[in-house]
Structures are given as structure tokens and as C-alpha cells.
């Protein structure tokens, strides 16, 4: 494997291997602190994403490597009209590995076809964000101690939420996953995701608008933000944004071992009163994101 563009580029064995490495990094960080000495990661962020960029940068620094790059298109040659392919070829001369975020879907794939170093898709528009999915998988594995045999509820914006679509695709390859889809009518999971993944793989699922009624069944609750940028009308965004707000009252009937996840940033869909609940995993998820990116960088750079 040379690049990571789509989560399905990785086999489940490769994902298991990455999770194993990430867990080892968490246990023995000092063992990895010099692994990438002399190596450079280029973070090419054609649109701002502080969280993902800093996670990649922190990952590289903790491996003893260095980082170069830019955090918005205005400070890159793209502002002068350079193509993604030319940028990728140029940066290949400076760095050993590239993490690219781009507002246009498919841009990291184009970069990977031209770059001579590995390319990681750090998010392309509303399309793919495979390292977020790896982060989610590591978090589930660490919280549940397994990647199969559980019921996961996805709540909020299931229509535009790419993290939801990718995680469903990734989980569909594991045994005995049950899915509960909780959303307002307007933000339901697109029918092609249901048809191409859930129905095709024979995954048991149900749809509901009522979070509390399904709460007792859930082992994992994956909350999402209703994203302002996906709406053409402000009015419609405002109408739907408060559809589901997770509060301590709504968790009354939840399992004691429930894992509450969220790709962040949150707006108000999880009450801050839940942050201290031991079931809240979303900040652990952020930390896991750094570790799985470390594991990925090591794998793509073929560092033993």
C-alpha cells in the first residue's frame, strides 16, 4: 500500500495491523519517538482544518520527524492557478509523505497518481476522510475491545455526514454489526448508502426519529453535528440544527458501557454536562486520532 485515499483501500487485516501499532504506540511512546528522524511530512491544506492538520503534525513530531506545508489555499501555488498534479510532483521533491485536504472531491486521488511519495487523504470536500474513520475504529476497538458484535446508533445529520457513511462502510466488513439510524426525516441516510452497503452486506438496521426509544439497545452512540456549510438556506439549517441534543436525561436508559462518540467539532448537540460522564469518548477520540495517524505514517513510510 502506497497511499490512503479511501478507507476501503485498506483490508480489515491492514486496519487490524494499524490498530495494533497504534495501541503499541500508546503503551510505549518512547519506542517510537525517533522512528521518523530525518523524515518530512508535508501538510497541504487547501482549506482550513485546524484539528486534522494539527493531529497530523503532532503525529509526525512525536515520531521524531519534521513538518512543512500550508494551511489554506491562499498561501499555496493553487492561488496562482497551479494544478493539484503539479503541486503533488513539486512537493514530492521536498517531503517524504503528503497529507492533503482539499475542498474538491477526488483531489487527493489526483495527487496520489502524480506524487512520487505516499499521499494521505486528509479530507476531500464531502467525500472521504479515511483517517477520521481509522480514528473511529481505533476508538471503538479500545472502548469495546472488539470490532464486531455490537449495536451502533448514528444520530443527527446522516445525509451529509461523510464520517457516518465512511464508518458504516468500514464496519460493514465486520461480523454481526447492527445499525440504528436516528435522524430527522430531512437528514436521513441517503438511499444509495442503504442500498450499496447495508442491504448489500445484509446488515440489520432500523431507522427512527426518536433517540430515547432506542437508547437502551446501543453499545456505541455516534453523534454528529448538523453542518451549516451543507445547507443552502440558513432557515432550514436553523430549523434542523437542534433536532437532537444529547443531555444527561436522555442517557437515563443507556447502557453503563455505552461509548459516546463524536467526530467534533460539536456545536450544541452534546451538552457539556456529559463531558465528565465516563461514557463520553469524544476527546479520547481526538487523542486516538493522533496515534492512528502515527501508525499510518509509519506504515506508509515502511518504517519498521
Amino acid at each position: 500500500m502506497k497511499n490512503l485515499i479511501d478507507i476501503l483501500d485498506l483490508s480489515t487485516e491492514e486496519i487490524d495491523q494499524l490498530i495494533q501499532t497504534a495501541n503499541d504506540i500508546i503503551e510505549n511512546p518512547e519506542k517510537y519517538s525517533e522512528k521518523c528522524r530525518g523524515k518530512k511530512l508535508a501538510t497541504l491544506f487547501f482549506e482550513p482544518s485546524t484539528r486534522t492538520r494539527l493531529s497530523f503534525e503532532a503525529a509526525m513530531y512525536e515520531l521524531g520527524g519534521n513538518v512543512l506545508g500550508f494551511s489554506e489555499a491562499q498561501s499555496s501555488s493553487a492561488a496562482k492557478g497551479e494544478s493539484v498534479a503539479d503541486t503533488a510532483k513539486t512537493i514530492s521533491c521536498y517531503a517524504d509523505i503528503i497529507a492533503m485536504r482539499h475542498p474538491k472531491e477526488g483531489a487527493p486521488l489526483v495527487a496520489s497518481q502524480k506524487a512520487t511519495v505516499p499521499v494521505i487523504n486528509a479530507g476531500d470536500g464531502g467525500h472521504n476522510h479515511p483517517t477520521q474513520t481509522l480514528t473511529d475504529l481505533l476508538t471503538i476497538q479500545r472502548e469495546m475491545h472488539r470490532l464486531g458484535n455490537f449495536t451502533i446508533g448514528f444520530c443527527g445529520d446522516l445525509k451529509f455526514g461523510r464520517t457516518v457513511h465512511s464508518l458504516i462502510a468500514a464496519l460493514s466488513r465486520y461480523e454481526n454489526i447492527k445499525v440504528v439510524l436516528i435522524s430527522p426525516e430531512e437528514l436521513k441516510l441517503p438511499s444509495y448508502v442503504k442500498k450499496d452497503i447495508l442491504l448489500k452486506k445484509g446488515i440489520e438496521y432500523r431507522q427512527t426519529t426518536d433517540l430515547e426509544s432506542v437508547m437502551p439497545q446501543l453499545d456505541v452512540l455516534y453523534m454528529t453535528r448538523v453542518q451549516r456549510e451543507r445547507f443552502f438556506s440558513e432557515e432550514e439549517y436553523l430549523r434542523l440544527k437542534d433536532s437532537y441534543i444529547l443531555t444527561p436525561e436522555k442517557l437515563k436508559n443507556a447502557k453503563k458501557e455505552l461509548a459516546i462518540m463524536h467526530p467534533l467539532p460539536r456545536v450544541n448537540e452534546i451538552s457539556v454536562a456529559i463531558d465528565d460522564d465516563p461514557r463520553a469518548c469524544y476527546f479520547k477520540q481526538v487523542l486516538n486520532g493522533k496515534y492512528i495517524r502515527m501508525a499510518l505514517i509509519l506504515k506508509l513510510l515502511e518504517v519498521e
Partner: peptide, 20 residues
């Protein structure tokens, strides 16, 4: 025809489709 696709801004890219 997707306005968010990279091919919408980079005219020289070949338009490739796969049978799914």
C-alpha cells in the same frame, strides 16, 4: 456533472467513470 468534483476545476484531467 458534480460541481464539487476536482474535474470541475481542472479541465485537463481525463473524465473517468467505473462501472459499479
Amino acid at each position: 456533472k458534480n460541481p464539487r468534483c476536482i474535474t470541475s476545476v481542472e479541465q485537463e484531467l481525463p473524465h473517468i467513470f467505473h462501472l459499479t
